[in-house]
Computed example of a mutant assay.
Amino acid sequence: MTDGDTATAAASNSAGTRLLIVGPPGAGKGTQAVQIAESYGIPAISTGDIFRANVKNETPLGLKVKAIMDAGDYVPDSLTNELVSDRLAQPDAAGGFLLDGYPRTADQVVFLDELLAARGEALTAVVQLVADRDEIVERLRKRAVDQGRSDDTEEAIRHRQDVYLRETGPLIDTYAERGLVLPVDGLGSIDEVAARIDEALASRGIRPTASA
């Protein structure tokens, strides 16, 4: 049995749908994350939301994050892992979840693997929104003009695309080796892309909840 077969078997042997969503800036990842969460009855969890919620509620972890961010430093993997672990332990994530923005590093991948394995779980699939780079750049340039953000230049937009590829590429390769990645065309209307995601997930036996 290959690593991909093992991961898929582990995921199917435990209840719940545990997904990651990845995609370049401008591909509509946040919008589709909300759609998936509603359709499949699982919480959409982003690291940004976790950070903000903990800081706002002044939790012990939130105070640590605030001190680091106020100092202008990056939140280390160890603290990010701790925050994600705390969030996934909450009741609404017991039946599955959709992670957005995590993991971002190889060490975070290892941590998530071990965290889920300790619970007898594994990832079900990784939804990868794919879109032509030039079309995304043009879309974001038009949006910037419409919103009066003259500082959001084509150069800045392309830089963010480069950062995404550099950070996410190795992670996508890792999950692809396990047979977990589902590439989905991210260009089109919200409903068109959502339908493609549904079709891709259905190919793995994952379907919307009856109440969706």
Rank of each mutant, 00 (worst) to 15 (best):
P208A: 03
A131E: 04
T153Q: 08
L116Q: 09
S85M: 07
A144L: 05
I42F: 11
T6E: 14
G4M: 03
D70F: 04
A53Y: 02
A122S: 10
T17A: 08
V181S: 02
P183D: 07
S12I: 07
A93C: 13
I172Y: 06
I136Q: 03
P91Q: 10
V84E: 07
G186W: 00
A15H: 14
L98F: 06
R178N: 10
Q108A: 01
L61F: 13
D3V: 12
L171Y: 05
I45F: 01
A7G: 01
I136S: 01
G23R: 11
G169S: 08
S211T: 15
T17C: 05
T168F: 04
K29C: 13
Q32E: 08
A67S: 10
Q147Y: 12
Y164Q: 10
M1R: 11
L20F: 06
T2D: 14
M69T: 11
V137A: 03
Y102L: 02
D86Y: 12
G169I: 00
V84Q: 05
F111Q: 07
S46C: 06
R196N: 06
A37Q: 02
A156V: 15
A10Y: 02
V110R: 10
G205T: 07
P91A: 15
S12R: 11
I197C: 09
T17K: 03
E155I: 13
R158K: 11
P43Y: 01
F111W: 13
A118C: 14
L165R: 12
T209A: 13
L112M: 00
A44R: 07
A10V: 12
I36T: 09
R18W: 03
S39L: 14
F97G: 03
G179F: 05
V75R: 03
V127A: 09
A194T: 04
L79H: 04
G41R: 04
R178K: 15
M69H: 04
L115R: 07
A27H: 08
T2H: 12
V22M: 14
V184Q: 02
E135H: 12
G28Y: 08
D191R: 10
Q161V: 15
L165D: 14
E154I: 10
T2A: 08
I190P: 09
A11D: 00
D151M: 12
K29Q: 14
A106V: 15
T153E: 06
I68P: 04
A212R: 06
L112T: 00
A9T: 13
R133Q: 11
A10S: 09
T174D: 15
K66R: 13
L79P: 05
L99S: 04
V55F: 09
P60H: 10
Q161R: 12
D162R: 04
G30F: 05
R204T: 01
R207S: 09
R207P: 00
D151S: 11
S150D: 15
T209S: 10
A9C: 06
A202N: 09
I68T: 12
D146V: 12
L99G: 05
L63T: 11
P76K: 06
R204V: 00
